[in-house]
Amino acid sequence: MPNHAVTAAGEAMPVGNTLSRLAELLRAGDSRGALALIESSTAMPPVSRSTETTTAATNRRNFLLAKGGLLAASAASLVVDTPKAAFAASEAPRAAEDISGQVETINENPDLLKAYDTLLAAQAEESAAKEAFEWLGDEWKHAWPLAPDELLGSANAHQSGRQYIKYAERDILGRFMMRDTSGLAMKVSPEFREKYPRTCFHVYASEEAKERIAYLSQRTPKGRTEKSLARDRAWIEGEIVAWKQRLELALKYEAETTRLSEAAGVVPAAQRVCDADAAVKEASAKISMIPAFTHLGLQIKARAVQASGLFDGDPNTAGRWGEFCRFIHAVIDMGGEVRV
């Protein structure tokens, strides 16, 4: 390795002093100055013609070969001298690969970097789980049956209250099924079909049919005359017959949809999505508890908060929520992609 390096002023500087100066620049966060010193150090020190032959080994090529070791030694000294970066100096060669980006990684809390790797792995699993779940919907949608028209109840069931929305017609993944109303002339009025070209219907379940049959069976016919009593009694009996037919259809429909769901593995696929989502939230929460040493660590923390979905909204939102969103986005955008 050469014994001297050349400064920007053209003066020879001992390698020991170069290392010290480079360590100071790195410690101060002056990456540009460090790069300038490195580039200037590749120049040959002034030598006399009489010594050219004896100093041929210290040419530019040999010094360039030694530059990686210079960077590694400088970064190692920086690691040793920095209290927060109390981890092995064996990480130092990473700085030689990209002095402008990787030095910050070396100075960052290793526990935070490890936690971020865990978050990235959890996010990858969540994405894969959701993709597999959506694939099930596409793969089985042609086998999934529509509910019989006799089981269709009120329209716009996807907008119903909590008590009845569970009876809305859904596909194999549990998403609302929107039917074309143009072919349901016997079910909805022309005005409704014009206003709602597509809608989701309430589907009578077997439990509803059983409850309705039980209620009608206990109902006492009412009427002031024998004729009115007979009419009410006939209506009750007719309703019981209709609901028994719906019960039979509902049991068959539910049995078929249950069979298809089990064959497709919907429940395990949905559980995988839930587990992956929980893992992302757990990794995000862990990152929030680990101190950051550099602005790279702050970016990691911002991305972890964004991964939770709490502040991944519209930055233009008014109020405190918008302020939080803008802050998270600003921290994330301050340094581009996080490289670990």
Rank of each mutant, 00 (worst) to 15 (best):
N3M: 05
T7L: 07
A9E: 13
A12Q: 02
G16F: 09
G16E: 13
A23I: 05
A28N: 06
D30T: 12
A34P: 09
L35P: 04
A36P: 00
S40I: 00
S41G: 05
T42L: 08
P45Q: 09
R49G: 07
T54P: 05
N59T: 06
A72R: 15
A73F: 06
P83C: 06
A86W: 15
F87T: 06
A89Q: 12
E91I: 04
E97G: 08
E104N: 06
N107W: 05
A115M: 10
D117E: 15
E134K: 14
W135L: 12
A147H: 04
A147T: 02
P148V: 00
E150P: 01
A168N: 00
A168Y: 03
R175Q: 13
R179C: 07
D180P: 01
G183V: 02
K195M: 05
Y196V: 01
T199H: 14
H202C: 08
A205S: 05
A209H: 01
K210D: 02
E211K: 07
L216G: 01
G223Y: 13
T225E: 01
D232A: 03
R233Q: 10
R233L: 09
I236G: 00
E237Y: 08
L251P: 06
A255H: 14
L260Y: 07
L260H: 12
R272T: 15
D277I: 07
A279C: 04
A279L: 03
A285D: 14
S288P: 08
L298I: 11
I300P: 00
G313H: 07
R320A: 08
E323K: 14
F324Q: 13
I328D: 03
I332H: 03
G336S: 03
